[in-house]
Design a protein around this nucleic acid. Structure first.
Lengths: 224, 224
DNA sequence: CACCCTATGTTTACAATGTAAATATATACG
DNA sequence: CGTATATATTTACATTGTAAACATAGGGTG
């Protein structure tokens, strides 16, 4: 057999054959690195050493590309094995899902708009629903519980990603901002901003809300 | 004085002068009616009887248009007056905010990405923060409470809008869907879908999650 | 009223983007 | 090998946001 060309040989040698997963992964990598706005078909083609139209052999259209990418990252969510403590399951899976969305900022926006769920997403949902089922939630409550947790995951990720300022930047921008801010018109909002500026956010607000929800679910599950 | 031309006279008479609010309102109306995808500068111009470029005298660019529209709908949120029952305030404002986002499906996606808040949005935030402040929440908890509620509002709206199927459509599509669905591979997900199909969603899942959160906040505020 | 200055609207143009259609090439299989 | 099928390229076009230059109108001042 002839020597197979090394996949990463970039310049002279012929590139490895394209396939759907390579396209999806390159797309995710590009979106991670430069933002979803940089992900154009031409640019992604260039990234793979190929013309834009070549991508259409592996992807129906850009929407298919995006949802394929999404399902790829959905596969990164950790699905804990069963254990008697339902809160532990649910909590860990939710935290992992949230972390994945934060790690791929472009993914959170797609999460809510995907009509056709990919296999990884389905595995994730199935796992989440099973945990709640095994915990003994009756069907209606189970449904509500699942959606409330899901809403919190995606809601928090999107809100957090909407303020893409790291702590230092926020200090600067915020101080500057407060100088021109009509403090007397929105006093509580001003206080809120000030609070964000001085206090190091201790821990993640995500887990606070999550525990609030889990507490409430536990109580509704077994009303004492 | 000469007779002022009627604003709605469409064909022969000269149209009323454009201004920012007319542009923003027409934009919101168009996005409401035909989806955010139909909102192009040319189309919006046509809607107002004007060329696309005329809009740029009243709006810096399309982003400015969108955020202007958003602040317009933020003004639709009801801000309840004070009353001793903090949960009542917070609950009603949250429900109103959620309803507004559901009424303007394009708005929910913008809500999370607005760096510069408009005046209506600021009034809304100020009002929400004041309610929690008057309820006696200490600063850290207040902050967490506000963001958790906000996350729930936007998270639920986006998730709900992501499945834009009314009940009847869902029955059809769902039945059809379940036939080709690998039920044995995702048994709990299949059960979940079945549950959605048969059970009339009694009430809004939004309020369920909201009350879960409010319960938890009440308990954290005054640990018995 | 005449004048002109500024705010508003139009025309033309261009670059970026997704993708259809036709064409070329390479790979696998008989 | 030779041919059919899968893959890649080329060319082209419609749609979009918006820059730049030009046109106009309308109102305040002489």
């Amino acid at each position: 057999m002839p020597p197979v060309p090394t996949p990463n040989d970039s310049s002279t040698e012929r590139r490895t054959r394209l396939n759907r997963d390579r396209v999806l992964d390159a797309g995710a990598a590009l979106a991670d690195a430069e933002g979803i706005g940089a992900l154009t078909m031409r640019r992604l083609g260039k990234e793979l050493g190929v013309e834009a139209m070549a991508l259409y052999n592996h992807v129906h259209n850009k929407d298919d590309l995006l949802h394929g990418m999404l399902d790829r990252v959905a596969g990164e969510i950790e699905l804990p094995d069963s254990s008697p403590d339902w809160r532990d399951h649910v909590r860990r899976r939710a935290i992992s899902a949230h972390a994945v969305l934060m790690r791929h900022p472009w993914a959170a926006g797609l999460w809510t708009s995907s009509i056709n769920l990919g296999p990884a997403r389905m595995r994730y949902m199935d796992s989440a629903l099973r945990s709640l089922d095994e915990a003994g939630f009756p069907p209606d409550l189970l449904d509500r519980a699942f959606h409330t947790i899901e809403d919190h995951i995606v809601g928090h990720a999107l809100q957090a990603l909407g303020f893409p300022l790291d702590h230092d930047q926020m200090m600067e921008t915020g101080e500057e901002f407060l100088r021109t801010f009509p403090v007397d018109e929105y006093p509580d909002l001003a206080a809120h901003i000030r609070h964000h500026l001085q206090d190091d956010e201790d821990g993640d607000g995500f887990e606070f809300g999550l525990d609030l929800i889990l507490d409430g679910l536990e109580r509704r599950r077994s009303p004492s």
